[in-house]
Each structure stands twice: as C-alpha cells, then as structure tokens.
Amino acid sequence: MTSTPSPPPPSAAALPAAVLPDATLPQPARRRPHMPRKFWIGAVIVGGYAVAALLAPVLAPADPMAQDVANRLADPGTNHLLGTDELGRDVFSRLVHGIRVDLMVGFLGAFFPLVVGTLLGALAGYLGGWADVVIMRITDLVQGFPVYILIIALVFALGPGIRTILIAFTAIAWVIYARIIRDAILRVRSLDYVQAARAAGIPHHRILLRHVIPNTIHQSVIYFTSDVLFAILAVAAFSFLGLGVPPPTPEWGSMIAEGQPYLRDQWWLAAAPGVAIVGIGLGLSLLGDGVDDRWRR
C-alpha cells in the first residue's frame, strides 16, 4: 500500500464535504436481521458449558483430586454419580472440573493464533515488500508440514504441559488467520469504497478498522470456532497419548486413557469424558456452521 494518502481526485473534491465522512460510505458488512436456529442451539450448548465451568466448584459434589483408594472403581450411584476411578476419585467431579481445563486450553489455543496471525497478516498485507515475502514463505513452510506431528515434536522438546501445548498451537495455527487478513487487505484496498475513503484522506488505521476488519472478521470467526473445537480435540488427544496436560489435573483425554484398562467392567470411566467432548464439539460446530450460513446467504 502506498504510504501516504493520495491526493483527492477532482471528482471527490467536487463533492460536498458532508457526503464524505465514512459513515455514508457503502458498508458491505451490513447486519442481517437474524442468525439461523442452529447458531442459537450451538450458542446455548457452548454457553451451558461455560456456565458449568464457572460454577464447577458448586456443581461438583466432591474434590476432583481427593483420593479414596479404599473406595476405588466404585459403581455409579447416589454417592458418586459416575462412580470413582482407579484412585477412588469422584469421576463426575473430575468431569465438571475438566470443563475448565479443556475449555480454557481450547479457547486460548485458538485465541493466541488468531491474534498473532491477524497481526502478522496485517503486517504482511500492509507493508508489502520483503515483510510480505518472508511472512508468506513461512506460512507455506508451516502448511507444507504435518502440523500435528510437529506439535508432538515440539511437546517433546519443550516438555509436556498446558504452556507447551499453547505455544505449539500458536506456532502452527496462526497461518490461516494471517492469510485471511493479508488477502483481505490486498483485495479490499482496490475496492471503490476504500479508494473513496482514502481519497477522502481517512487515515490507514481507520480504513483498516472500519472497512477491512469488518469485512473479514466473519471468516476469522468461522475459523476461530472450528479452531477452538480442534484445539479441544487435540489437547484431549495429546493428553490421551501422555503428551498433554500431565496428571493429576482433571482433563478429559487423560481421563479416557485412565479408563481404558477398565473398559470391560467400568466402561463409563472411558465413555463419559468422551460424551463431554462430543457435546462441546457439537455446540461449537453448530455455532460455526450458523455463522457460516448467515454470511454465505
């Protein structure tokens, strides 16, 4: 993008000043009246999980870490809604506290890449030149790589834990947001209403905030909701493999791994955390699908 606003062409200068402020410019990112029903179903599910995460200490009948080895592998019943695990911990309480861990890692694991990717993409699109070349070559390299395998290797190098998982996700998932923003900047700056805004002498950051971001944000939001889902699935998978959230933190993937040896007789130990994952996964999918539908139509 040229660094200084170009002088207004004669036609723009001829317009009355009152017509020019950007409130009157065409705004394609116009609000449509309502979201599809599946968006709301998804929102209710995700909201329900979020509330349960906030209220976890109230909802959980027992301390998720408290061991009671004399009472291990107890059947589900009035004392323990979903029984107890191999160390006698209350499974339902661990499941509820697990929402906090999985939802937080899922949300942050998608949020950091969104921020980093948007910044780097804006930089690439805005500065152009070598910055653009370098940033885009890096995205090529990351995209040509088996990303999850790279995460395993990074987890190996940095040691397991939530911090490592978040670093690894951010290092890899920022790519898509960078591309969205960069492509949008390149596309949008040739559009009439942006040309008009620039002709009117509106500063770059304002054009970016008022015209570029609103027209790309829905795309990023769709990727964001599916990235939250993938981050939750991935952190559960890494923990299942013993490379994610270390025990004894209540996390759904490691709970499934701990339940696997008891599949024959205490099947609910492995089944229940999976149901929790499927629930939040469906909620996020419906949410993302709803946003997608609204913007496609």
Partner: peptide
C-alpha cells in the same frame, strides 16, 4: 458429519472395542 467431526478418534476406537 457434524457429529463425526466432534468425536475424538481414540474415543470412537474405544467405544468400538466396547
């Protein structure tokens, strides 16, 4: 498809075993 995406593969595997 939505359901399929939401299910962790390792959990599906364990449920098939079960």
């Amino acid at each position: 498809s939505l359901l399929g995406i939401a299910m962790p593969s390792f959990w599906v595997g364990l449920m098939l075993i079960l």
